[in-house]
């Protein structure tokens, strides 16, 4: 519980808008206590910038408890920064030392255009879910919940895959800016459960096709995504997605675009 004061040098990516060219700017963060969260450190820098009549650093954040998936920046070359299994908002300054230089960059991917500074547009991930990341069940028409027993191990697996918070760190960390881990987590979550079987094949094809259409890269099995993932979503789901896709393509009896909704 000891408290220390840090003086830090920040090199921050500043970009005025989606079409503007960006640049790094350097700021000093003075007398930062080690109990602050990383984003609180940025709040302090920003408040000073505003009071001095300058533009604060734009960054995305919301719940600040590591679950909403809004925050995220690349800190010294690592998505969400140096602490494993930790989102940017849950990173605390005790992970840094006095005098450190910190480089802050946005998620860089063609699928995530920069909106401003460290804020990127991740709606591509929403569109991947829209392509089939759901079970089609009409409100009010669900059968009694306990009618279909699901083995505990299967339910636990599905939950492992469902832990994804959609922050996009996997894309940011991947050398190819691939959204495989994100897409695979949802395909796996739903394909594991009996409720997800009816749409299983269509789902895999549609979601993968959308993932590609968004301009994300392909998976080259480096494993950077798994390391960067704040929720520990496993690479095994990518292997599962690959199986699901091949199976659905081999078995497909309807052309992919002709699906009726």
């Amino acid at each position: 519980m000891s408290e220390e004061l840090l003086n830090l040098t920040l090199h921050v990516w500043r970009q005025d808008g989606p079409n503007a060219s960006g640049r790094f700017e350097t700021y000093q963060a003075k007398e930062i206590t080690t109990h602050m969260s990383f984003l609180e450190m940025l709040d302090v820098v920003n408040e000073e910038l505003i009071e001095n009549g300058k533009l604060p650093i734009a960054f995305d954040h919301d719940c600040r408890e590591g679950i909403c998936g809004t925050c995220g920046m690349v800190i010294n070359g690592v998505a969400h920064g140096p602490q494993k299994l930790t989102t940017t908002c849950q990173l605390h300054m005790r992970q840094f030392n006095n005098g450190d230089e910190i480089w802050l960059e946005p998620w860089r991917a063609s699928g995530f255009p920069v909106l401003k500074d460290l804020v990127v547009d991740r709606t591509a991930l929403d569109r991947i879910i829209q392509a089939g990341g759901y079970i089609s069940i009409r409100t009010g028409s669900a059968p009694e919940a306990n009618e279909m027993p699901i083995a505990k191990a299967i339910a636990d697996h599905a939950m492992d895959a469902a832990e994804c918070i959609g922050c996009g760190a996997c894309v940011a960390a991947c050398p190819n800016a691939s959204a495989s881990l994100f897409t695979a987590a949802k395909i796996s979550h739903l394909s594991l459960l009996p409720q997800g079987q009816a749409e299983r094949q269509d789902r895999a094809r549609q979601m993968v096709a959308q993932m590609d259409a968004e301009g994300f890269g392909g998976c080259t099995n480096h494993g950077e995504c798994e390391e960067a993932c704040p929720k520990g979503v496993s690479l095994r789901w990518i292997a599962r997605m690959n199986r699901e896709l091949v199976r659905s393509m081999v078995k497909a009896d309807t052309p992919i675009e002709s699906r009726k909704r």
Binding site: I135, P143, M148, P149, K152, D156, H189, Q195
Partner: peptide, 18 residues
Amino acid sequence: DQAVAQGVPFAREYGGLL
């Protein structure tokens, strides 16, 4: 019922029930 049908992975017992 609705949430289970949507695939919400609620905790389950060994018998497979919620």
